[in-house]
């Protein structure tokens, strides 16, 4: 056989890109087919619906549960602020758990199963592989948070009073940032260690550690924990963005830096790994 001189591959319809679009579509389809998105969205919806209801009816619930035995203890009349506070606390706790559970197997699981090797022997960059996973994760967490916030806003309006939408947009943004921080840290754990269990451990230690650090006076606003207070206050319309000033800016900047650092470590580590 006479071999002709090989030619460069012919150009492709999509320009032979990094594969990000195809991989993101796969991530989103996987989120739906494996019920990740419906389950997380359902849990967040429940959180959104139940938080104002709990805040509104907590005094009655306590009374029905034998609150008359508490004697002179008087429970104040709940307000919209209580509903928002309840929502932010619930989303911060359950949401962070969901973020950790969603992020922990994303890369280590694909490496274990051998599907990462299947993808990365195609003309796909490792960064596109990681970015698609992060984007898919962000869509699941972001969409679920939006659903929770819309449900909570409607129920807060029905049970208390309608609150300005702008403050709730801030709440959505700040809670999403909080969730992305734990998702990014757990994701980095999944990439660097290659172990789902270790990634979960890193996520939970981060949740615990940042919770402790944020309780230290003066340090709180330099951690993701500093996002939650402003989120509550802005959504409850008790303070304006201008009044918060650095109390809003610092935690946002600190969280973005944390997320960026986690993503950078992930990309650096994954680029050096063998599959």
């Amino acid at each position: 056989m006479t071999a002709t001189a090989p030619a460069a591959p012919a150009p492709r319809a999509n320009g032979g890109g990094s594969g990000f679009g195809v991989l993101l579509r796969k991530e989103l389809l996987e989120s739906i087919r494996t019920f990740r998105l419906p389950i997380v969205a359902g849990l967040f919806l429940f959180t959104g619906l139940s938080s104002p209801v709990l805040a509104r009816y907590l005094p009655e619930i306590i009374e029905l549960a034998g609150g008359d035995q508490l004697g002179v203890l008087e429970i104040p009349t709940p307000t919209a602020l209580d509903a928002v506070d309840q929502l932010v606390k619930n989303l911060a706790q359950f949401g962070a758990l969901a973020a950790i559970l969603l992020a922990m197997p994303l890369v280590s699981g694909e490496k274990d199963r051998g599907t990462a090797a299947f993808i990365l022997t195609k003309p796909v960059t490792r960064r596109a592989f990681l970015w698609a996973k992060l984007a898919g994760l962000a869509v699941v967490l972001g969409a679920s948070t939006v659903i929770a916030v819309i449900a909570a806003w409607i129920y807060t309006a029905l049970l208390f009073e309608p609150l300005p939408v702008a403050g709730w947009l801030w709440l959505t943004f700040l809670v999403c940032l909080w969730l992305f921080a734990f998702a990014a840290l757990t994701f980095a754990g999944s990439v660097v260690t290659g172990s789902t269990a270790a990634a979960a451990g890193i996520g939970f230690v981060a949740l615990l550690g940042l919770g402790i650090v944020s309780a230290i006076p003066g340090l709180g606003k330099l951690t993701p924990g500093g996002l939650l207070g402003p989120a509550t206050e802005l959504a409850a319309n008790t303070v304006s963005v201008g009044q918060l000033g650095t109390n809003l800016f610092y935690p946002i900047a600190a969280t973005i830096v944390l997320i960026a650092a986690a993503v950078a470590v992930s990309a650096w580590s994954f680029g050096r790994q063998e599959l």
Binding site: P9, S18, G114, T121, V124, R126
Partner: peptide, 14 residues
């Protein structure tokens, strides 16, 4: 990645 086109790969125990 930009020069990976042209290779087909089958892993052991896919």
């Amino acid at each position: 990645p930009d020069r990976r086109r042209g290779i087909g790969v089958l892993d052991q125990e896919p």
